[in-house]
Nucleic acid binder design. Structure first.
Lengths: 314, 314
DNA sequence: TAAAAATACTCCATAGGTATTTTAT
DNA sequence: ATAAAATACCTATGGAGTATTTTTA
């Protein structure tokens, strides 16, 4: 008889490829896990792993079973979640993944509002690149992610929250009038500073500046926007800065922000979750909360911030 | 701890809405099932059923859990199937659903070839309307269905096998030349004979004869093509007959088959299965087998059959 | 020889069965 | 009063732990 326990253990084994460590991961002894794997192989009638003293490897069929098991386990987690969170909205733990170009700018404004509106929520935030977030989401290690839309993948549902314009950050240029608009063609590929590979921001910037192929400084990607902005301030080049990040990243007058000519580049920021997730009401509430928090004026200095009709800070 | 056993029992309860009968269905005693349901409710923290002496009813949340449980159970069945049928193609049981306007005409030609090519297959055939087949397929009671494509529904994959032309069956008309072509507009709605509601053949016929709304005899649907053809032979009207059925249904010379003007109406016949099914290789083999069997001349009398260049039998 | 998985053996949690009680109509 | 689910209680299966052996690179 097939049991979830067998699938849980096998899932752990498929990840660790090591009986002992897999047993640790599911908090049982190694023989206990061995037996369940054995039992699973018996009920399926096929070999799932090749046992070698120094290496455990999945068979071809083992990989397929691992895929199916992961899916089933993910759905059982969702089923459990549904029970636990039936009734009340946004209670208990909520594991939220956010991309690096959003997290530090949005969280300070959203977190206070969220914990005030939903005091029983236990928010666990994880920050990585979109690709990692999607993978964790699929594996059931995250409940919902906040990233730039659209996101690839079936089994994924999403909700766009707001559009975030890109501005051009350049070293202070007192000679430029507030109304100056920059055309993307005027960007010099050799001085465009970008984040490292994998950041969606990098791809979006390159996509907008069609002619520019990564070369010169573009090829050496920074790991954080702060680093990039420091380089801009030091006169090493220019970069595309999401408006969301402006109030935090532009703290001195060594940097000016310029608007682009229409159509202005922008990214769409929104939430995404597993289609099978039972917590859509929670995600709705979270999305509403984020929007409400953004409607409030930013709490911080907001110093050289980009108000809608006061675009340029030189 | 959530177990598959709990889900299996709850699934049975959701179907039978009766603890005793559900327990029978899963071959345990009623208290055993009661306990597992209780345990499931405890781990989920919600009530799944309202217990009343004379009636068990699912709560709102119970229905949702039942849906999710059914899905999980279906995927575990697929996982088991994958194991059992890994390696060999078309062995063990294969539950095939076929619509009534295909089954009696195709099976006599396909079954011998199939059991010869795959002697270890245990084919279990079920015959119902498309809607019923899809529902059984989704619930995991069928492995694959043979019906007219396209079929609605996500989670469904299909493979078209062959196109089946519709011919017009009329009472013997010796006055008509073999080359006569019928235009759909010439069909009189009041004499068009159709199968009862739910048969895709009925919808396809009505769809082709655009002007004709069900009225007169069309509204009284027959339950089998044989009945319809008897009525045609008796002069009660005309009907659209799939070419596949011609050799069986047209046994005497009281009926003539006429071809339509181009573009001739036809249906696409093919196989469909759950996207998550692990037995796609089996379905491939089955499809190939059906096509091969159809390439052979029909074994039966084939008397007034519709050979391609000898369209009319008067 | 050493690392890692499989066996051996014991224990206990729990699923299941039978008999009985409770409950609501 | 009756049908049906819950409870009580006992049994036994099997999952888990510890200690040990086997395996092969």
């Amino acid at each position: 008889m097939l049991t979830l326990r067998q699938l849980r253990y096998f899932d752990a084994l498929a990840h660790h490829l090591h009986f002992g460590r897999a047993a640790d991961a599911v908090s049982v002894s190694q023989p206990a896990l061995s037996m369940q794997i054995r039992e699973l192989e018996a009920t399926l009638g096929i070999a799932l792993v090749e046992r070698q003293p120094n290496a455990v490897r999945l068979t071809e069929q083992g990989r397929e079973i691992a895929r199916r098991a992961a899916r089933i386990l993910s759905e059982t987690r969702d089923l459990l979640d549904y029970g636990r969170h039936a009734g009340e909205v946004l209670t208990g733990s909520l594991r939220l993944g956010i991309i690096p170009s959003i997290a530090p700018y949005l969280l300070p404004r959203v977190l206070p509002a969220l914990t005030e509106a939903y005091p029983n929520v236990d928010l666990q935030v994880r920050e990585t690149l979109t690709q990692g977030l999607l993978s964790e989401l699929g594996q059931g290690n995250l409940d919902v992610i906040l990233a730039a839309l659209p996101l690839e993948g079936t089994d994924i549902e999403s909700r766009a929250l707001f559009d975030d314009r890109f501005l051009l950050a350049v070293r202070n240029r007192p000679d430029l009038d507030e109304r100056t608009r920059i055309a993307p063609s005027s960007i010099d590929g050799s001085t465009l500073l970008l984040l490292e590979e994998g950041h969606c921001l990098r791809d979006q910037a390159l996509n907008y500046c069609e002619g520019v192929r990564p070369e010169g400084r573009s090829t050496f990607g920074a790991t954080s926007l702060s680093t990039v902005m420091q380089m801009v301030a030091a006169g090493y080049g220019v970069t595309l800065l999401p408006e969301l990040c402006a109030s935090v990243e532009v703290r001195d007058d060594r940097v000016s922000l310029l608007r682009f000519t229409d159509p202005q580049p922008q990214r769409s920021v929104g939430l995404a979750w597993r289609r099978s997730s039972p917590r859509k009401r929670d995600f709705d509430a979270l999305g509403d909360c984020i929007l409400a928090a953004l409607d409030q004026p930013a709490p911080a200095p907001r110093q050289p911030g980009i108000a809608d009709d006061n675009i340029l800070t030189l």
